[in-house]
Nucleic acid binder design. Structure first.
Lengths: 199, 199
DNA sequence: TCTTATTTACACTTTTTAGTGTAAATAAGA
DNA sequence: TCTTATTTACACTAAAAAGTGTAAATAAGA
């Protein structure tokens, strides 16, 4: 029988340090020595927990994904204006783009994935799909007779295309979006969507 | 008086080699030795032309931007259905996403820019704005009474948001888009846009 | 208090690559 | 043919970072 003590304290400290190191200086320039130092651990301990930098990176991504699974269900409400409800969906994306830490993390992650395709492959296995619940919402609204949509999956893509470009990709690659500009765009996106699909 | 001979042959060979090396293996893993070899030049000559790897990268971007300035004007035509004309604008984006070389180049460039913010800053100075001519087209169509648009700049953003997300950002980060899927989306984007802004 | 799982200190190897110095070779063009 | 601008060969330096081996120190928990 082998005694096991609790290693999770150090392990978490290392992951936490790695998260910040990767965000601050990117995957390549964040050395294992630096991460060890920030985690107040010896480099040897880092390697005892994670056999390579890539394994550590995967753990970091895992950690991030875990944290991001806060459910954000937006149920269909028959007695609330469609516009207001769609605004909430758009807000989801705006909200992410406003979260500096999250954006920095994702920017870093994309950079790594572009630069290191092998790591990207590993990460993609763990990265689930993006079920925002919009399609379900559209189904409900359509069933309720307030929207006319043949293909709710397609309509969902139209809406997310607009929002993602302005509220995610652009800020990701070109820096944060002005708040009032975001508001203007959000309004116009929702109006455009409703012009197409509402009764 | 100092005699000057023509160095451009070697210089171009080096840039050409660098373009392909950067695309193939990324900025970091494309060594100057490798680039020199592919350019059939000595490493010393590479450094005689470009004092550092960053300077070389800038020249490569410059080269790419230069090539990409093939004008793609789509003039407003009073006697052609709006849908057909908007389709052409959408095609511009689809066209880029289909160009494997261009996409690989841009993927690489973004990767570098995310990973090396200092290089990004330099590049951004040379990277002009994106005047697609859509806004001018919308102005004309509005003046002609076939569209009702208060803010054509905003409307232009709505259209490009939809197209960019599906035909640029997603393929850039997640690989090429299925052709029939692209067609479906294009149709829906144009229909949505017209539902909002046409008479 | 003891046992020993875990962590640390630290010296080490290996690999990779940017960038330089220089003398000799090459070749453009007068 | 001659001059010399350009290129080459190649041996360097310097730096950075991944990953390893090991003996000693530390501390959890029975």
């Amino acid at each position: 029988m082998v005694k096991q003590r609790d290693k999770s304290k150090k392990r978490n400290a290392i992951i936490e340090a790695a998260v910040h190191a990767f965000i601050e200086m990117g995957f390549d320039r964040a050395s294992m020595d630096y991460i060890a130092e920030k985690a107040e651990a010896s480099k040897r301990t880092v390697y005892n927990h994670f056999e390579s930098k890539e394994v550590l990176f995967n753990a970091v991504i895992q950690h991030f994904v875990q944290q991001s699974i806060e459910e954000k269900q937006i149920p269909y409400q028959a007695n609330v204006p469609l516009e207001a409800q769609l605004n909430k969906f758009a807000e989801l994306k705006v909200g992410i783009s406003t979260n500096q830490l999250k954006m920095n993390f994702m920017r870093m992650a994309f950079g790594v994935m572009i630069t290191h395709p092998n790591i990207a492959a590993q990460v993609m296995e763990n990265a689930g799909k993006n079920d925002d619940g919009l399609q379900a919402w559209l189904d409900d609204a359509t069933a309720d007779g307030r929207l006319i949509i043949e293909d709710t999956a397609l309509a969902s893509e139209v809406f997310w295309s607009m929002c993602s470009s302005a509220f995610f990709w652009m800020p990701m690659l070109q820096g944060e979006l002005d708040a009032s500009k975001a508001e203007t765009l959000k309004k116009e996106f929702v109006a455009t969507f409703l012009a197409r699909y509402s009764k």
